[in-house]
Nucleic acid binder design. Structure first.
Lengths: 204, 204
DNA sequence: GGCTTCATATGATGATCATCATGTAAGGCG
DNA sequence: CGCCTTACATGATGATCATCATATGAAGCC
């Protein structure tokens, strides 16, 4: 081992982190190898010492996105459990902050509409991530829930859908309304009490 | 007027229709001017006689998508009204068929995740389309609904989210489960009776 | 019947991009 | 001390792409 003992690994991780951010903001197509390497402080040449192809990079980056997402979920939930944890997760998910920072946000919401341009290599990681998110939500639903996995599946669809929609929409008021009303609806569906009415929107 | 009287208009419409399909399947970036024109039976040169730029094409194509979507909604709803219309719409929306034909499907679900690569010119049309979809669903909710626009907003998020998710996922069983469980949840939330149990999925 | 107009074709231009062959320098090892 | 592995750089290649300048050819008009 020349250079410092794990030089290459650290570089690889920095490239991965940058790619994970770029993919979430600009989509898989929006990332160029040269621009990516430059962001890490290197030139494009060395890229193929770390990844076999751009598709391989994307697949690896998708994986790391979901790993990061898991730790972020823990941070949002803190030491809560059960429905309280679910409520905290929903509240942290459907915020303008999360909407405005896709680069460090939920990969499910970011890759939702990129199915066409996501290379086949990255698909399994996405599936696993979706399944993990559904399972997580199911595990926090009230014990009395009849079919937790069924409900969780529906909740995940609305969560990711609302966030992605709020990003796609241009009008700020419409965007905030989409976030807030799905937040309320999701809390109600999860059997949670009416939350702090932190954003009083009225239609029309 | 040389050629037949409205030759140019018809060509323009054919280009638009092809673009609307391609954008929905491959995303805005996935459409090339040359390939698009070839699909219409022309060469790339004439393109700029019809559109000022690729972005202008995309903006126009997004508009036509939403126009088509409106007529398709009428077809799905037929002569039903009120909750029955809503149920028919939900059932027609969350099907494997709709999932597998994005090229003629709902633009909201297709463009959900393309916010980054959608040119600014096309954004207003998208907003209008989303608003229209929310309004439509609100108008069909039961009269007793407390805040129809609020509920409709949440329903649209889940509808589009579930469809987009079902497309992004690789595993067919997972995909079908996402569709079906959101279909059931949405019907219930819209105050509709338990529907025909056309697809009995069990988790695990 | 020739002129003119307009829809489309041909071909070029420059930009961007993934990929790779080869060069270089850093630094542990003999 | 010098060698040689290794991480990265330089530069080239060929592909793809949007855009546009110019050519062509059909068809209505005088």
């Amino acid at each position: 081992m020349r250079y410092s003992s794990d030089q290459k690994l650290q570089t690889r991780n920095r490239v991965l982190k940058a790619a994970a951010a770029q993919i979430r903001t600009h989509g898989p197509q929006g990332v160029g190898v040269a621009a990516l390497m430059q962001e890490v402080g290197l030139t494009h040449g060395g890229f193929y010492a770390h990844f076999a192809s751009k598709d391989a990079l994307i697949a690896a980056a998708v994986k790391t996105m979901f790993e990061d997402a898991a730790t972020q979920r823990h941070r949002a939930i803190e030491d809560r459990s059960g429905p309280a944890a679910l409520g905290a997760f929903i509240d942290s998910y459907l915020t303008a902050d999360h909407r405005d920072r896709p680069d460090r946000g939920c990969p499910v919401a970011c890759l939702l509409g990129q199915s066409a341009q996501l290379p086949a290599l990255a698909r399994p990681a996405f599936d696993t991530g979706v399944r993990g998110m559904v399972r997580l939500m199911a595990s926090y639903l009230p014990d009395a829930t009849r079919d937790p996995m069924a409900l969780a599946s529906s909740l995940v669809a609305e969560l990711a859908g609302a966030l992605a929609l709020s990003r796609a929409v241009e009008d700020e008021a419409l965007s905030l309304r989409l976030l807030e009303q799905s937040r309320l609806a999701l809390r109600a569906r999860a059997g949670l009490a009416i939350p702090n009415p932190e954003s009083p929107y009225h239609d029309h």
